[in-house]
Deep mutational scan, measured.
Amino acid sequence: SSGGSSILDRAVIEHNLLSASKLYNNITFEELGALLEIPAAKAEKIASQMITEGRMNGFIDQIDGIVHFETR
Rank of each mutant, 00 (worst) to 15 (best):
F69L: 04
I38Y: 02
G3T: 13
S48Q: 14
G3M: 10
L36H: 01
L17P: 01
I27Y: 04
M50T: 01
N25T: 14
T52E: 14
D61N: 12
I60Q: 01
I51A: 02
I13W: 06
E70W: 08
E14D: 04
F29S: 03
F29T: 03
K42C: 15
I7P: 10
F69N: 02
S2E: 14
I27L: 14
T52I: 12
A20D: 02
I46A: 04
I60E: 00
R72P: 14
R72F: 13
G4P: 14
I27D: 00
E31V: 07
G33M: 03
I38L: 07
E44V: 15
G54P: 00
H15L: 14
L35P: 00
G65A: 06
M50G: 01
A40C: 06
N26R: 10
S6L: 09
K22W: 06
A41P: 06
G54A: 05
I63Y: 09
K22Q: 10
A41N: 09
G33F: 02
D64R: 15
K22H: 09
L32C: 02
S2T: 14
G54W: 01
I66R: 15
Q62N: 11
F29E: 00
Q62D: 09
S48N: 09
I38A: 02
S19G: 09
G3P: 11
L17A: 02
G33H: 03
I66M: 11
M56F: 10
N16L: 15
E53L: 06
V12P: 05
I51Q: 03
A20C: 09
T52S: 13
P39E: 08
S1P: 12
E14Q: 04
N57R: 13
E44D: 03
S5M: 07
I66P: 01
D64V: 11
I60N: 01
M50P: 00
L35R: 04
A40W: 09
H15E: 14
I27M: 13
F59Q: 07
D64T: 15
P39S: 12
N25Q: 14
S21V: 10
T52Y: 08
D64S: 15
N25H: 13
Y24Q: 05
I66Y: 07
K42P: 02
N25R: 11
E44R: 13
D9W: 03
L32F: 03
K22L: 13
S5V: 11
A43H: 00
D61R: 06
I7K: 10
I13T: 05
K22N: 07
S21D: 03
R55M: 07
G4V: 12
N26L: 11
L23S: 08
R55Y: 05
L18Q: 06
G65R: 10
F29K: 02
T71H: 13
G58T: 01
E37G: 15
R55F: 06
I13C: 05
V12Q: 13
F29C: 03
G33E: 05
S2N: 12
G33W: 03
I38S: 01
A47R: 00
H15T: 12
I66K: 14
G58A: 11
A43L: 10
R72Q: 13
E70F: 10
E37L: 08
R55L: 08
F29R: 02
G3S: 11
L17F: 05
K45R: 10
I51L: 07
G54N: 06
L36G: 00
K22P: 04
S5R: 08
F69S: 01
S21Y: 03
V67P: 03
A47C: 12
I27C: 07
A20W: 10
K22R: 10
H68S: 06
N26I: 10
I7A: 13
S6V: 14
N26A: 13
Y24L: 10
L23P: 02
A40G: 05
G58N: 01
E30H: 07
M50D: 00
T28H: 04
D9Y: 03
R72N: 14
V12T: 12
G33L: 03
T28V: 02
I7D: 14
V67K: 02
A41D: 13
R10W: 14
E44T: 09
I38W: 03
D61K: 05
L35I: 09
H68F: 11
Q49F: 04
D64F: 14
E44S: 12
I66L: 08
M56W: 04
E30N: 07
G3W: 02
Q49M: 07
F69C: 03
A43M: 04
L35E: 02
F69T: 03
N25S: 13
S21M: 07
I38H: 01
G58F: 02
H15G: 12
L18G: 03
A40R: 05
S6D: 15
E37K: 14
P39I: 04
L36D: 00
V67W: 02
P39K: 05
E53R: 05
G3Y: 02
L18S: 05
G58D: 01
R72Y: 10
S1T: 13
L35V: 06
N25E: 14
T52D: 13
F69I: 04
E30C: 07
N26T: 13
A20L: 15
M56Y: 02
S1A: 13
L35G: 00
E53W: 02
L8I: 12
L17K: 01
L18D: 04
L23Q: 11
G4Y: 01
T71A: 09
D9N: 06
A34H: 09
M56A: 04
N57V: 12
D9C: 06
E53C: 06
I13M: 07
R55D: 02
E30M: 08
P39T: 12
K42T: 15
G54S: 04
R10C: 10
I7N: 13
E31Q: 09
Y24K: 05
Y24I: 07
E44F: 09
Y24N: 05
F59P: 00
S2D: 13
S5D: 14
H68R: 08
G65M: 07
G4R: 08
R55P: 01
I46V: 07
F59C: 11
L35M: 08
T28I: 02
L23M: 13
A34R: 13
I27H: 01
E53M: 06
M50I: 03
E37N: 15
S5W: 00
L23T: 08
E14I: 08
L32N: 00
V12E: 11
G3E: 14
F69G: 02
S21C: 07
G54E: 05
A40D: 03
I63S: 09
D64A: 15
A11N: 08
L32T: 00
A11P: 06
I51G: 00
L35W: 07
R72M: 12
R10A: 08
E30G: 07
G33K: 03
I60L: 05
A11V: 10
I46R: 00
S19N: 14
L32K: 00
E31T: 06
A34W: 08
G54Y: 02
V67D: 01
R10Y: 13
L17W: 02
A40I: 06
F59W: 15
S2P: 12
L8Y: 09
L36V: 02
E31D: 10
I66G: 04
L8R: 11
G65H: 09
E31F: 07
I13F: 04
Q49G: 05
T28W: 01
L18A: 06
E30F: 08
T28Y: 03
E30V: 12
F69H: 02
R10I: 14
H68D: 05
I27Q: 02
L8E: 09
F59L: 06
I63E: 12
L32I: 04
R55N: 04
L36F: 05
M50L: 11
E14Y: 05
H15Y: 09
L8N: 11
L8G: 10
Y24R: 06
L36S: 02
G65F: 05
A40E: 04
A47E: 00
M56I: 15
N26F: 15
I13E: 04
Q62V: 14
S2R: 06
L36R: 00
L35A: 04
V67Y: 03
